[in-house]
Nucleic acid binder design. Sequence first.
RNA 1: GGUCCCUUCGUCUAUCGGUUAGGACGCCAGAUUUUCAAUCUGGAAAGACGGGUUCGAUUCCCGUAGGGACUGCCA
Length: 475
Amino acid sequence: MSKSAIVTRFAPSPTGFLHIGGARTALFNWLFSRRNQGTFHLRIEDTDRLRSTVEAVAAIFDGLSWLGLKHDGNALFQSRRQDRHREIAEQLLTNGNAYRCFATEAEVAGARDAAKKANRPLLFDSPWRDADPARTPDRPFVVRLRSPRTRPVEVTDAVRGAVRWPAETLDDLVLLRSDGSPTYMLAVVVDDHDMGVTHVIRGDDHLGNSGRQALIYQACGWTTPTFAHLPLIHGPDGKKLSKRHGALGIDSYRAMGYTPEAMRNYLARLGWSHGDDELFTTDQAVSWFDLKGIGKSPSRFDTRKLDHVSAHHIRSGDDASLLDSLADWLAANDKEPLSETAKARLRHGMPVLKQQAKRLPDLLARGEFLLSTPPTPDLTELAGQLNTDAKSLIALARTLIDRFAEAAWTRENHDALVGDIAVRADLKPARLFRLLRSMLAGIESKSAPSVHDMLSLLGRRESLKRMAAAVPESV
RNA sequence: GGUCCCUUCGUCUAUCGGUUAGGACGCCAGAUUUUCAAUCUGGAAAGACGGGUUCGAUUCCCGUAGGGACUGCCA
């Protein structure tokens, strides 16, 4: 293992599902570690016990595994590391980089209100920062970091460049709450350090945190990792993605019938680019990925482009795995699983079905004609649509059956036959195709493939059977 | 309010001082045509604004406007 081994991590809070933005963050971390033969860790930030549930944690595992983003080693639960976090806080207290603050919450709030009125940064300047440790009151306290007040804090971000904050805008952040529990700020830094994380790739909403966290790294004497803050994903209206935009969780996209491969492609291209490449495989993304390709501005989620990417991956997908994906989709939506014969038929038709599908369920809609015998078409109704009468339509159908029955079952023959019959009947071939379509897949079949494809997929025997069934016995 | 970040076609983006500003989605037109699609061809469509720097700015700097994030003893 090289000394410069890269370690990344994805550290979601379990809030109910794997957010689409979180999924992209995970993907970038995964891509970056794979690209560099590094390590990709998963850490569950479950220190907010009220909001963290086993279901929420399971949703994250499910989402990641469906997306194919496997983490190395075991997932780490932040809540189980509180002793370690406290230990660091104690050290900081001992070496003077932190202090006990006995200010009440009301005092802090009052100071902030005053700062706001005076148009100053909302920081709280604790009177206990320089108090005599011997003269401390006997009441609850928090442990605060003693931030340097003279120099600005600077962080170098791999996508943003140098970012700095004036010293007076950063207050002494709380490390340990008055009940002794560690705060998020402390926990993140300690965990990232202990896990050996070299690159913190996360959402833009953490950019401000990186300055504060840098202060903790400095106080601990640790080297800060490289930060890379990803611009957020917005809804189609440019506002932060929220419930009113519809699907937020990766599970929703799974339920809609997008494949993991397509989601990876679309998500990777949202906020990251490799020249003009739009459609690519995951292997390609891995070999191309770099932090330089990450954009700076937020991007909007566009489901129509997602559809296009999805269609491409279905079209170029492997028939057998497409069938597996379809089975997964059925299961994810609590639908009845495919029977063995249904599987065999869809598998047989897959080369055709996948040509025009945007999402997995389209495969099923296209292939419906293969799975069940269509209802007998009402030729009277069809005659109405074709602006002719039922009687001549039936005659045409019979001719079609007779001629098809005696010719070899090829597309060329079918074309020639239809052309010939059309000329004799003084009709446009299009009408005969409409008639054939109705006989093979039902009069309402809008989503079935072309007549030629159906003829070929169904074969001579089944096709002729359906055609015959469509014509009334006695007229 | 304060701090920080962002700004190229409607959308995702390329460009790393000199281009007819390129590609993709979507859109429009045409071809094809047995529905819906898919496919092929063509088309419309962008550097927020104002100042600098420079022989030359989309590109560098400043300002303005707009958008976003953060601003907790949440994560």
